[in-house]
Structure formats: structure tokens, C-alpha cells
């Protein structure tokens, strides 16, 4: 098993890791320490103190608040989307491309979906405007709750103490 330094994991997150190391990461058995390094790299990127314990996206984290140890979904800007068991998208801003004009802003003529079949739903952070996700369903489709992690089981896999409010 290979071990990678925090610097290498930071470069991975930045997208600047050299190909040889990246290739090693791909081809070798996974390094269990990656989790700790990754969390530490992510924590360095944000200006707030709540403890990041998982990433839902490049700017969307599951964090344990320092105030009461509750587990929340949080934007890198600090915006709090509420309890992590609730779908964060319900507390985001949504912009729906549901007509030809709105679709023409993102793809040339003939290269975007026909909105009587499919729409794009772009989810933004209400505080910083980062786009956290795009759904491309039919009209009427319920908002998808992408991922509901089993935190106790994960921490068991990682041999780490389970967060108190998981």
C-alpha cells in the first residue's frame, strides 16, 4: 500500500498533481490515511471552524459544528444548508432551464435538450452563487436526494470514533 503526503493530496484536490503520482494513486491499493489528509486539506481551504467530516462536492461539505456538534451541510463560503439528513437542495436556489431561450444560453441550436422532454435544474448557493449541482430530469421530477451517508458505518470502516450526533 502506498502512502501519500498531505501536500500530494492537496495537489490532487487542486488538480495539479503530477501524472506519475496520480497514476500510482489509481493503480495501487487505496491508502486508508487519505481520509485524514483530505479532511485536513479541505479544512485549510475554508475560513470557518466547524469540522469537515466528508465532502459532498468541491464546495459542499458535511461538517460537525463547533457550537453543538450537530452535523450540517455547509458551503465553502460558510452558508449553512441545515441538518445533513435533509436534502440540501431544498435549501438552495434553483434556476430551471425549461424553455428554448434558456437552453440556448448553454448550448448551440440543436445541441440542447427539447424542454418538453427534459429540463436543466441548476442549484446555487444563496450566499456565494457557486453552482453545486445540475439535475437534468423530465419536468415534474422530484428533487433528488443524491446521497445519504451512513456515518457510523463509515467511521467504523475508518477505525475512527463516530461523531456524537451521527
Amino acid at each position: 500500500m502506498s502512502n501519500f503526503t498531505k501536500k500530494q493530496v492537496a495537489d490532487l484536490v487542486k488538480g495539479s498533481l503530477d501524472w506519475d503520482t496520480l497514476h500510482m494513486m489509481l493503480s495501487m491499493p487505496k491508502d486508508k490515511e487519505r481520509y485524514a489528509n483530505y479532511m485536513s486539506v479541505l479544512q485549510d481551504q475554508v475560513s470557518w471552524d466547524d469540522k469537515i467530516i466528508m465532502a459532498f462536492g468541491p464546495h459542499l461539505f458535511l461538517a460537525e459544528t463547533s457550537a453543538d456538534k450537530s452535523l450540517v451541510t455547509k458551503c465553502s463560503c460558510g452558508h449553512d444548508f441545515g441538518d445533513y439528513r435533509t436534502n440540501w437542495k431544498l435549501n438552495a436556489l434553483v434556476y430551471v432551464r425549461d424553455d428554448e431561450e434558456k437552453m440556448s444560453q448553454v448550448y448551440p441550436t440543436l445541441m440542447a435538450p427539447d424542454t418538453s422532454w427534459q429540463v436543466y435544474r441548476e442549484y446555487y448557493c444563496p450566499s456565494c452563487g457557486v453552482m453545486h449541482d445540475i439535475e437534468a430530469p423530465t419536468p415534474w421530477y422530484p428533487v433528488i436526494h443524491d446521497f445519504q451517508p451512513d456515518i457510523p458505518a463509515l467511521f467504523d470502516w475508518l477505525d475512527l470514533p463516530v461523531p456524537v450526533n451521527a
Binding site: 459532498f56 462536492g57 468541491p58 459542499l60 448553454v106 448550448y107 448551440p108 440543436l110 445541441m111 440542447a112 435538450p113 427539447d114 418538453s116 422532454w117 427534459q118 436543466y120 457557486v130 453552482m131 453545486h132 449541482d133 445540475i134 439535475e135 437534468a136
Partner: peptide, 19 residues
Amino acid sequence: GYMNSDWGMMGGYPAATGY
């Protein structure tokens, strides 16, 4: 053609549809 079958991920867009 009228639809994408792929979606983007974590803020990325789907590919262009066909024509």
C-alpha cells in the same frame, strides 16, 4: 436527440445532445 442520457456531476453540465 431530444434528451441527454448523461448528466454532469457536482456542478458540471451534461454533454451536448445529438442532432
